[in-house]
C-alpha cells in the first residue's frame, strides 16, 4: 500500500525545477492536459456547431402545395403542360373528367416529357412510357404516375392539392377527390 501513496504535494515544484531533463511533474502535466483538451474540445464544438447550423438553411424554399388552375373550360381534351415547370403537375382532360398527374416518374424520379405525337409521357432516364392517363405501359416503371387531389372551389375554380395523392395500384383512382367530372 505504501508504494501507491500520492507524493507529498509541496515537493513537486522543487522537483520540477531540479529536474535537469525538464520532465514534467504530475501536477503540471495534468494542468496542461486540461488546458490542451479544453482547447481541443472547444474547437471541435465550435466547428461542430457551425456544421450543425449549416444543416438548417436560412431560407427554406418550399413551393406551395396547393394552387389554382383556372376553370374547367380552360382545358381542351388532352394534356396541359402549363403547370409542369412551376408545380410539377400535368392537368389532363379526357371526355369525362379532369385530373392532375404528377410529373415524377415512378421508376427513379426523373421528369418525363410529354410527346404529343405519340400521346404519351416518355421518361428520358430509362425509357419508361406512360399513357396520358398515367398508366405505365413500357420501360421499367413499376407503377402508374400518381394523381393529386383536385376539386372545384365555390367560385368554380380548379384547385389542385399536392399534399394528397392517389395511386392506381392501391385502387384510389376511382376516389371522387382525385378527379373533376365534366
Amino acid at each position: 500500500m505504501a508504494d501507491i501513496k500520492p507524493p507529498v504535494t509541496n515537493t513537486s515544484n522543487t522537483k520540477a525545477a531540479a529536474n535537469p531533463a525538464g520532465d514534467m511533474d504530475r501536477r503540471s502535466f495534468i494542468k496542461w492536459s486540461v488546458v490542451g483538451w479544453s482547447a481541443f474540445v472547444a474547437v471541435v464544438a465550435g466547428y461542430g456547431s457551425m456544421v450543425a447550423r449549416y444543416l438548417f438553411p436560412n431560407v427554406l424554399f418550399e413551393p406551395v402545395q396547393t394552387f389554382r388552375a383556372g376553370v374547367p373550360e380552360d382545358y381542351e381534351i388532352g394534356v396541359s403542360e402549363q403547370f409542369k415547370e412551376k408545380y410539377g403537375v400535368w392537368i389532363v382532360r379526357d371526355s369525362e373528367k379532369i385530373f392532375a398527374l404528377s410529373t415524377v416518374c415512378t421508376h427513379l424520379g426523373c421528369t418525363p416529357n410529354y410527346l404529343p405525337v405519340d400521346q404519351k409521357f416518355k421518361c428520358p432516364c430509362h425509357g419508361s412510357g406512360f399513357y396520358t392517363t398515367g398508366i405505365n405501359f413500357e420501360g421499367p416503371a413499376p407503377r402508374p404516375l400518381e394523381r393529386f387531389k383536385i376539386y372545384l372551389s365555390d367560385q368554380g375554380e380548379i384547385i389542385v392539392d399536392k399534399t394528397k395523392k392517389f395511386q392506381q395500384e392501391k385502387g384510389e383512382w376511382s376516389d371522387p377527390e382525385s378527379l373533376i367530372v365534366v
Binding site: 409542369k84 415547370e85 410529373t103 421528369t111 418525363p112 428520358p124 432516364c125
Partner: peptide
C-alpha cells in the same frame, strides 16, 4: 439545375 426538367437523354 431545375427539378422539373430532365435533360433528354439523361
Amino acid at each position: 439545375a431545375n427539378p422539373t426538367v430532365s435533360p433528354n437523354p439523361s
